[in-house]
Nucleic acid binder design. Sequence first.
DNA 1: GCCATATACTTCAGTAGTGAGATACTTGAC
DNA 2: GTCAAGTATCTCACTACTGAAGTATATGGC
Lengths: 163, 163
Amino acid sequence: MSIEPAPLPTDPPTATALKLFVVLSRSQAAIAAHAEASVVSHGLTITEFAILEALYHKGPMLLGEVQRKILVSSGGITFLVDKLEKRGFVRRALCERDRRARYAELTPEGHALIARIFPVHAEAIRRAMSGLGLADQREAIALLRTLGREAEALGPAPSSIEG
Amino acid sequence: MSIEPAPLPTDPPTATALKLFVVLSRSQAAIAAHAEASVVSHGLTITEFAILEALYHKGPMLLGEVQRKILVSSGGITFLVDKLEKRGFVRRALCERDRRARYAELTPEGHALIARIFPVHAEAIRRAMSGLGLADQREAIALLRTLGREAEALGPAPSSIEG
DNA sequence: GCCATATACTTCAGTAGTGAGATACTTGAC
DNA sequence: GTCAAGTATCTCACTACTGAAGTATATGGC
């Protein structure tokens, strides 16, 4: 006597949200795979690349600022900047206003590296997105911006533990 | 003498694709954070949950089928099914047609667990997506479906190594 | 000034994977 | 039947983190 597969929810709000979750996750994974391929071939992980890219486009940043921008843990940002520092792409600098804090900034070697590979990366992203025309991409940006902003603003789901 | 921050690309196809990449990644991360919170409180990782959910809605599946569905490596699916098997939520079963292959299927305990937590998870997703109305969600599904399908179909980017 | 609390970063043990190679079996050509 | 090539799973060394606790400094109330 085997257990029957359960049907998926059919009420429209839940069914639609679940479908959106699936296509959002899969499309993000598919695009990220292209982005990653364009970067690992240069000996960087996608997260290391994200740090170099942030410093390249914003200039020196406090470690905490970088951490929030690339969405890693506090331990993660120390670990990642250590790795990039050992390879000579990034260095730490003191912050005069707050002696707890440290800036991360590109070395000339790091700047040269990211200046060389960023255009390749940008082209890989453009190509990965080419399934959608420019107008559709703008439409998607508007929808996802709203979706993301509201999801980030939403507190944790009301739990059954708290009455 | 410091290095100036570099400007972002401004040609519309590249600039738009990069923006879309950012909002796609951030919105996916924001939604996934809600999905994950609804699942870790039950002692499962999101990937373990995905396996139980797949078996719950599709019935027994070959390990390779589950692997492709949840997008993990070959080593990953063995590791994950091992963990779920040790906790008594899943068991392996022989495949009569192909003696290399193994089915994964829910135990009664696993079925009871996923039947209990899936509705909570579905509700968390519905809530996380509530920044968008139903019509906008459908629009987003259509756009992301196209985007993901085309990105998956795209081969690796032409490398500078191959002429 | 002194203290409690908050913040910025680091350390470190642990976790959830990846990916290459190994094993076992299947399939089709001959 | 036999073999080569292909496929399904497993093993294992390795990696990229996470998150909690620790250290150093900052900030505001008194």
